[in-house]
Design a protein around this nucleic acid. Structure first.
Length: 581
RNA sequence: GCACCCAUAGCUCAGCUGGAUAGAGCGCUGCCCUCCGAAGGCAGAGGUCGUAGGUUCAAAUCCUACUGGGUGCGCCA
């Protein structure tokens, strides 16, 4: 149930009635007609722009349309007032019973209120994290992981069939570097002194991998040349790194449906067939690229390469898929991977990249556009940098990795719930400040705490009422006659609850889970305000001593708040707190 | 040089496929509370929405140019 779409449907019905009555011409397009909450609550509960949108095509004055529409709307039982305002806005007020009905709906459908069928079961693939398997995940990955995971949950909630996917970059030169680094740790485990030069990974996290390798193969690789051990250690090391990464994701509560290995594309003809697909469309040619202007590399010389004509699909320059020595560039397996996604018949693809990969967006979209003949949309979301602070000071050091702060460093300190919520309190493309102290603060300016506290307060009230012997089960609260829920402050909270299904759809349509976090903060704020008013006005308290019926009515409202907070936190992957500690 | 992202209150940020007098938290000012319905409450001041044009009944939102900041730009993924 979405009250806003219900009322929009009512508006459309009224407009059709006006057409039938000859008050509006036939054949008007109503798609731009919206029903939304007015910015200022004084204007009413809902407003429609119908009169202004239709004035021009109908060749009528907005106010004339609005006034006739108002009479139609006012005849609906839900609408208590419909009045024309400003340039032609039509403001509506809805009766208390409608808002009480919202609470009833929430309590009757605690598992589904807010869910939407907007996605129509369309299959969407969300690819996120996709970090190189060369070490533990760091803070940047953490943001991408949280964002991608929340986005996936949001889309699921909005009625899409979602696949969460991780692309393992295990096919390039960086896994050779990993293998060599592990080899050094292996030698170290055999008691040799080793030096980590540039181009190797010196992090401590490879020490146990070197040890494990020794346990497995003994001294078989000691003093052997690279061609003896490289391939096998590469395999061993990437498996170990993926175990590490899976563990990291696990502590954050991220669970992928599918891991896709880049290496699986090599030697299987998959890259070749993806490139052939492009070739068959006339998009592959041999050519020489111009050097980038203003930033000409020192050693630039023109070389003929195999190029993808990505400019035909919106890119700025054509992109190489083969190096001059004939081997594939990193772009080629990426094309093949996305070809695979297209062939798996997803209706929509979403890639979550770090902002430093922004330059990669156009070519990837061009590739998917070309491979799917423009049929499979690809949305690429970039997550911006996370700046860490501790005691207000920038914070860079890591216990484990030495050079970067890991996901584990963050989660160990503040927990997965705080990590996830905070990472979503900013738009994905805005930089995020993460202060280890502030995120644990118990005050209004910490949204994590404030939302959790609101939910905890509801549960505290539920416990208290139960102690008094009042039945506050959802079943009992659903059945209550809510006509006593009439104070404007209380109905205001119900109005906020009515916005939830609408917000879910907006957030899902824009692929912006942060909107959920902001909504929850506002909802929590409304609950806290009402709670505080109860300090002065006894009639607004949720637990009414000695009046079980009224208590149930009041509590049904706050329980509904808790239902929505839990649902919202569920989307964000945060566990709702039932009490604060 | 080119591309992408960003620019909103003193600070950190929201702002719906374009809607009315642009919101929140912090900080500031004033009042109240300090009774575990506790981890404070209420109210107020504070904005040329980077600049200049354009489209529109209507622009923070869309288009163009410019300014400032970030990211990236052929054999690294």
């Amino acid at each position: 149930m979405n009250l806003f779409s219900d009322i929009r449907a009512l508006v459309i019905d009224c407009l059709n009635a006006m057409v039938a009555a000859g008050d509006l011409p036939e054949g008007l397009d109503f798609k731009n007609v919206t029903v939304e909450p007015p910015r200022d609550a004084l204007h009413g509960d809902m407003a429609t722009n119908a009169a202004m949108v239709l004035a021009k095509p109908a060749k009528l004055r907005p106010r004339d349309i609005a006034e006739k529409l108002a009479t139609h709307l006012a005849s609906d039982a839900r609408v208590t007032v419909a009045e024309v305002a400003g340039p032609g806005f039509l403001n509506m007020r809805l009766g208390a019973d409608t808002w009480q009905g919202v609470v009833s709906t929430v309590l009757a459908n605690p598992q589904t209120y807010g869910r939407s069928d907007m996605g129509q079961g369309q299959r969407v693939n969300v690819e996120y994290v996709s970090a190189n398997p060369t070490g533990p995940l760091h803070v940047g990955h953490t943001r991408g992981a949280v964002f991608g995971d929340a986005l996936a949950s949001l889309l699921d909630y909005a009625g899409y069939d979602v696949t969460r996917e991780y692309y393992i970059n295990d096919g390039g030169a960086q896994v050779d570097v990993l293998a060599r680094s592990v080899y050094l740790r292996y030698l170290e485990a055999h008691g040799q002194d080793v030096a980590f030069e540039d181009g190797t990974y010196p992090g401590d996290y490879l020490i146990p991998v070197g040890q494990a390798l020794k346990d497995k193969v003994g001294d078989a690789y000691v003093n052997q040349s690279e061609d003896v051990w490289l391939a096998e250690i590469r395999e061993f090391a990437t498996a170990a790194m993926m175990d590490l990464i899976r563990e990291d994701l696990g502590v954050l509560g991220v669970k992928m449906d599918h891991f896709f290995s880049e290496k699986s594309l090599y030697g299987t003809g998959l890259i070749e067939s993806a490139i052939d697909s492009l070739r068959s469309k006339g998009l592959i040619y041999e050519g020489v690229l111009e050097p980038p202007k203003g930033k000409k590399p020192e050693d630039w010389e023109p070389r003929e390469q195999t190029l993808f004509k990505s400019t035909e699909h919106g890119d700025d320059v054509d992109r190489p898929v083969q190096k001059s020595d004939g081997s594939w560039t990193y772009f080629a397996p990426d094309i093949a991977y996305h070809f695979d996604k297209v062939e798996r018949n997803f209706d929509l693809l979403i890639d979550v990249f770090g902002a430093d990969h922004g330059g990669y967006v156009k070519r990837m979209k061009a590739a998917v556009s070309a491979l799917s003949d423009g049929k499979t949309p690809l949305d690429i979301k970039l997550t911006q940098l996370v700046k860490l602070f501790k005691n207000g000071e920038p914070f860079k050091m890591s216990k484990r990795a030495g050079t970067f702060v890991t996901l584990r460093d963050v989660v160990d300190q503040v927990g997965p719930d705080v990590t996830r919520f905070v990472m979503l309190t900013r738009k994905n493309d805005a930089p995020l400040d993460f202060d280890f102290d502030k995120v644990l603060e118990q005050s209004r300016d910490n949204p994590v705490f404030y939302v959790q506290y609101a939910n905890a307060r509801v549960h505290s009230v539920l416990r208290k009422a139960t102690e008094m012997g009042t039945d506050v089960s959802d079943a009992a609260l659903s059945a209550v006659d809510r006509s006593g829920l009439a104070h404007d402050a209380e109905l205001g909270v119900a109005r906020k609850l009515a916005e939830w299904p609408r917000l879910v759809e907006i957030a899902a349509r824009t692929n912006e889970p942060h909107r959920v976090a902001f909504y929850l903060y506002e909802l929590a704020s409304d609950l806290h305000s009402l709670w505080n008013r109860g300090n002065d006005e006894v009639a607004l308290r949720f637990v009414q001593e000695g009046d079980e019926t009224t208590t149930q009515v009041k509590i049904s409202l706050v329980r509904a708040v808790s239902v929505v907070i839990s649902a919202g936190l569920g989307i964000l992957g945060v566990t709702p707190a039932e009490e604060m500690r």
